[in-house]
């Protein structure tokens, strides 16, 4: 679905989302539910210091307002922007700041729902979609940590070999199904059902971000993570 179709289906009564060159900031009324804040990255933009800072500005203001309204993140990004200048300016802090703000909003009574409708990768994925309390995808979404050609370069394996291995495990290859199996994506919506209804259903359920490793175990995408983390907690308590 295109951004216009998504906004139209979510907010049939209209919205006041400011659609910038690379990011979205604004709000809208979800029918039969109430106001919510909208933030996003679109047109597969790379997330650099300025955009991360502008998105965080809005999220901090929402948090400070104490209005308790849900935050909806619409995500169609590339990776973090890869320039010397972004790194010199401390992109790690800008991305971490955005993620912290979204995570704290989730703790402080806001629902933070991310809707991944296009791409997202690496640090941009962590700072936006994965900082939400629940990540939803639309069919055709294509999250990735690193694309296969780059992965082939780094691992020094031919891409055909990587493609072959990817059939055996969801653990490394890009793609919605693989990420869903690791517990990252809670559910994939149907484009044929009005999105506002599907969003209301998600808002009525509790947040899931704290139990993604358990979901990954259940879906057989991450066989060990949840059990290892639980054992560490147990051992730490026993030693205390």
């Amino acid at each position: 679905m295109t951004l216009d179709e998504i906004l139209g289906s979510l907010f049939p009564e209209g919205h006041h989302v400011d659609i910038g060159e690379s990011i979205l900031i604004g709000g809208a009324k979800l029918p039969q539910a109430g106001q919510l804040h909208v933030l996003g990255v679109h047109v597969k933009s790379f997330l650099g210091v300025e955009d991360a800072c502008a998105l965080a500005r809005h999220a901090v203001d929402v948090l400070a307002s104490g209005d308790g309204q849900p935050i909806l993140l619409l995500v169609d990004s590339a990776s973090q922007r890869m320039t010397r200048r972004d790194e010199m300016l401390g992109l790690n802090e800008y991305l971490a700041h955005l993620a912290k703000t979204l995570i704290l909003a989730g703790i402080r009574g806001h629902r933070v729902i991310a809707l991944l409708y296009g791409g997202s990768a690496a640090g941009a994925f962590i700072a936006t979609a994965l900082a939400a309390d629940t990540l939803i995808a639309l069919p055709g979404a294509h999250p990735e940590v690193m694309d296969l050609p780059s992965m082939a370069r780094v691992t020094k394996l031919p891409i055909t070999v990587l493609e072959e291995k990817a059939k055996a495990t969801p653990i490394f290859a890009p793609g919605l199904d693989n990420l869903a199996q690791t517990g990252a994506v809670f559910e994939t919506w149907s484009p044929d059902v009005p999105l506002d209804a599907q969003l209301r259903e998600v808002l009525a359920r509790p947040a899931v971000a704290g139990s993604r490793d358990a979901l990954g175990a259940q879906r057989k995408g991450r066989p060990k993570a949840a059990a290892i983390a639980a054992r560490i907690v147990e051992l730490a308590q026993r030693s205390a």
Partner: peptide
């Protein structure tokens, strides 16, 4: 990278 998806999720969970 050999377990990129699990590693990415771990980072999000640690944060």
């Amino acid at each position: 990278l050999q377990e990129a998806n699990a590693g990415e999720m771990a980072i999000a969970e640690i944060m």
